[in-house]
Amino acid sequence: MSLKPKYLPSYFVSLRSPASLDISVFVSFKTFLGKKIINFIDPYVDMIVVDGISLLCTDLQVDPQDIVMVSVFMTQKNILPSDIEFEIDTIEKFREKLSYMRSELRDDQRFREIYNFSFGWAKEKGQKSLALETAIGMWQLLFAEWHWPLVDHWCQFLQLKHNKAISRDTWSQLLEFAKTIDLQLSNYDEEGAWPYLIDEFVEYLTENGIVQRPQN
């Protein structure tokens, strides 16, 4: 089974289709960019918003699937503090801002905020959990930035054994797991409070010989 199809996060998917368009996102995006650049952003707004985003990304020389875009949206929604006031009046300055935000992703705390924010961001409105396809796409994006070697196994395991939506709890605990448990799983405690899906993942890893746990 190939695990490398480029999954599209659902927010991009929804931006692609005018019917389920989240106008407010774009409007507040404009606010974030500031009045000064109203002229700069206007051409994008005038277009169908989805294409506008795409075009914006092209101009920014950013892949729309780049996780840094999540960061952008978070900042713009005041979820993350925008600590420096950039004078963004040109596409170049926006680009500079992006590379700064990208560097921020390497910060643990900031990454955690983005990671946890992504769940609510990516899930369908009114749903409590995140569709598996979307979740897997998001994980691929996020863990591309913050490297976790088991991510492919995790996604493969979910598709083989779970094939259901992902709860917020499992989502957020997975980051804890990725951050705290070493690759030999030597500090993993089966008596702990890990979500059962993670317990089963550990079983899957050991049963399939992907990880040899040290005998203690």
Partner: peptide
Amino acid sequence: KAIKKRIEDLIT
């Protein structure tokens, strides 16, 4: 495992 699942469900 069943208890764990129920705890997670109650979290949701």
